[in-house]
Design a protein around this nucleic acid. Sequence first.
RNA 1: GCGCUUGUAGCUCAGUUGGAUAGAGCACUUCCCUCCUAAGGAAGGGGUCGGACGUUCGAAUCGUCUCAAGCGCGCCA
Length: 538
Amino acid sequence: MEIKESIKVNIQSALKKLGVCLNVDDITIDQSKDPTHGDYASNIALRFAREFKKAPAEVAKLIIENLDMNQFDKVEVAGPGFINFFVKKSSITNIIETIIDQGKDFGRGETKNKKVNIEFVSANPTGDLHVGHARGAAIGDSIARIMEFNGYTVIREYYINDAGNQINHLGESIEARYKEALGLPFSLPDDGYHGEDIKDIAKIIVNEKGDSLVNTNSLDFFMTRGMELELDKIRKDLKTYGVVFDVFSSEKAIRADNAIDKELKFLSNHTYVDGGATVLKTTDFLDDKDRVIVKSNGEYTYFLPDICYHVNKLERKFDLLIDVLGADHHGYINRMKSALMMHGYDKDILEIELIQMVRMMKDGEEFKLSKRTGNGYTLRELCEDVGVDAARYFFVMRNANSHLDFDLDLAVKQSSDNPVYYAQYAHARLCSILDSGKEFNLNKKADLLKENSELALIKMLSSFPDVVKLASDERAPYKITNYIHDVAEKVHQFYTNCRVIDKDNIDVTSSRLALCLASKIVLENALHLVGVSAPTHM
RNA sequence: GCGCUUGUAGCUCAGUUGGAUAGAGCACUUCCCUCCUAAGGAAGGGGUCGGACGUUCGAAUCGUCUCAAGCGCGCCA
């Protein structure tokens, strides 16, 4: 069992002897920052002093008297009533064997029997993905990986708005470029897409169809074929980026079979007509304003098919829907939740993760990111310039709801300034040591480890399952990159302070090699959760 | 005007859900390779945690007010 967990259980049974029953989760244990405070500390006595009607320090003393002392060298009361645990070395080093035995599964959470649908990117297939999508993709996919690892069944879904005007504009733009490619007169639509990529698509269609589409009414073909080709590019770029979707949902398909009219009928208890428009009374639930779903000219607003889509997802029996959206969509949250509540769902069945804007910085200035003008910096260019690992690490490194300044100069530099290399280098170093020491036996008991830098590293490794759970519960991949940094730091300190391979001291060598292997496993598992590779040499 | 998000070191950001002396990276000043990768390690300077009041043993963290920034408040998507 993990150290913290076993201390919690220990405290729990001590409290039970005192007549207090608590859940293990209600007991908090922190790793001590100051070594004079022991290895771990708990504030449990401070928090529950009131219920005992005694001074915190006295409560702490009572708890200590009822602890099973087998795993500790010493336990003491400190300050206003903290309990400081000095853990036996053997109790700390135990985890190494667990890590090595579990390997890729170390840190994995118990199966939750819950299906989660995570929808992200969902960019219209009218051009290349830009860096805003890239952040959403990195965060969405990392949340998926983390929740999967923590025991959820996860489906990654991409929603294609293929029923709207954008696709018309795409078709018209491709048609114009098609004529251009054939040397015919053409005019680009004002609302069209003017990027170079549209010319490439037109050329592909020329290759496929020659000039057979010139005088025919082929807009539908340009639309559907164009969309397919755009989607192929997006899929390919995402795959390079390490993101693979399980499901692509199409708005057109959702709309088929009169789904929208059926939905409208279903919602009719919650609608009223105002000025010829049909308005949904979302204010009956969470919204601060009612929302039009059918315009007075009879057209639907985007909101109605979106409701259909979410209902469609829920009909596929998910326990939780997560939408990863740009922060400018925050007004949308209560609106959609209200609509789902009209269907009898709990408001928490839908979670929206908002992603703040990315500013790409180069030479101290911001890039503008307009897809429309064709000047946007794309995911593909980003991967070519800084590599997938750096891109994903940078995007995930910060809390999603804070703005991100992506320093392109720094990321391109591929030097030690770049935080992703710090972590990867630690992994590569470990691999290098393991390779040099492959003729020695590994001692999974690792019972000779006693240096501070060894024990600090082991404690850090030991907390990985906790970090996974926290990152999963909070949908916070940046907790993983923070953790990766901390482990890498401890690895580098260990490397500097402790010579691993020593032919004159084979016992210590075997123990340290085991620690190297355990560290390598944890780093690899953690890097995998954010889609960053763990290179064996650099 | 209303709502959401954010204010922590020169810059970019953490802060284990209310705990002990507020941390990391970058930048700056030093020091450390005869030895498993120096893409590393060690030390140092740098802070009114936007501000005020409150809650309690204890607040960067919770509450109220306030200031500032970004975004949202369409019969646009």
